[in-house]
Design a protein around this nucleic acid. Sequence first.
RNA 1: GCGGAUGUAGCUCAGUUUGGUUAGAGCGCUGGAUUGUGGCUCCGGAGGCCGUGGGUUCGAGUCCCAUCAUUCGCCCCA
Length: 441
Amino acid sequence: MSLDTNSYRGARDLYPEDMRLRNYIFNTWRQVVERYGYEEYDAPLLEPIDVYAAKSGEEIVSEQTYQFTDRGDRTVAIRPEMTPSVSRMVAARRQEMPYPARLFSISNFMRYERPQKGREREFWQLNVDLFGVENIAADIEIITISDAILRAFGADRKMYTIRINDRRLTDFMMTNYLGLDVIQANLMIKLFDRKNKISPADFKQQAEDIFGTEVAPTGLAKLSKLIGAKSMADLPRELADSDTLDDLKKLFAALKSAGINNAKFDITLMRGFDYYTGIVFEVFDEAPENNRAMFGGGRYDGLIGLFGVDPLPVVGMAPGETMLVEFLRAHNLLPKSESTTDVYMIVLGDSLNGAEKLATKLRDEGVNVAVDISGRKLDKQIKSAVKMKVPYMLFVGENELSDEIYTLKDVAKSTEEKLSFERIVTSVRDYRRKSDVGDDF
RNA sequence: GCGGAUGUAGCUCAGUUUGGUUAGAGCGCUGGAUUGUGGCUCCGGAGGCCGUGGGUUCGAGUCCCAUCAUUCGCCCCA
């Protein structure tokens, strides 16, 4: 019996052409967040299980983490997310960190889930967190960066929407306005989460069940006022007077003046229930075939305190690679895939020694060169170069070596020029400079 | 965890309804012809446990059961 060549379920093999796309995404992420002054960190792949159990729901941890007992009898989990780890790291240096602390990481995670479109068992995420700022400026910065990231991939603001809500408003709404107890509020939050997936009639029916028959009529009336609110101005008086709206107003004003015209207030936005304490937001893909939340984030001021130090305010977000690729594909923003090798050297006749020497000289000038050392016929060598998507081929034979004039072929344009060594170097450099600053990479 | 669809050559698929000799096509791959230049042309070749395991049958790619995988929904999504 032979071994299976398939990769582990929900985890992908990345061949060079896949890795080119991943590198493009990671490089773009890194470039944007570093421009905002964020610095990179990393944490171990494994954490003690308690780190997750304390923060998230118990059943999520037991059913969806990869966990095992190590040789020292400790129960550990492969990280399913970064937030607990980075919180642990910041808590450990609570007193000595420079604040505001701006941190990011690009790391892989694993969750034991059923793989489907846009979701894998092993996945990569950018995590961006801003520690130590209580005021709304931190929330503004994180949302602005979310926008900047998508813009950096060439996205137009018509392609996505940023939906924003505030957890404090949700709490006030559930408890004071709708008069729900904790259990009812929980159910209502789950129902709000499902709002776009079910019919209005089903929504109404399920809401009625939550209210109970006695209070349902007044409850439903209040609910429909909420759902109908397209902006903060439409909110019922009881909510509109609440203090948290000042923050939201400042936030929207700031986003507007930054040109972010696709941010919308959405009272129904929930984002789970667990640990958010203020602003929450989600970035939605507006492509019809893909209409759903791509990623999100928000403020979670309570987590650092779990590690036995004074609490610290935090705002963070985490876009994933998988969803982003779906977004780029849907909007035709995928870059053209090209080899990192600049020049594929095609060796004619007995010229291998001379070709290798020339390759070394080119490499000394920073040109990436692959020499075809196979000794195959010309057309086979050319086919390899085309398959690799190398931008240039360089033909090296006895005549070229004695004249020191070589034929450089542009693979895409199918044009060729006879050039000296120096001219080859400048041609390749010009090409690289152009493609690095363009929309494509 | 639940439901639907799909697994045949490297890839895209036909063949399955109605079981019947050596399982096909296009592209790709490979050898050659012609070219000091591929994405032209011509001639030849290799490559399949028909996802896997069991069952029915004289006989299974085809029918039945199970299982695994892919995929679309549901649940969930820290």
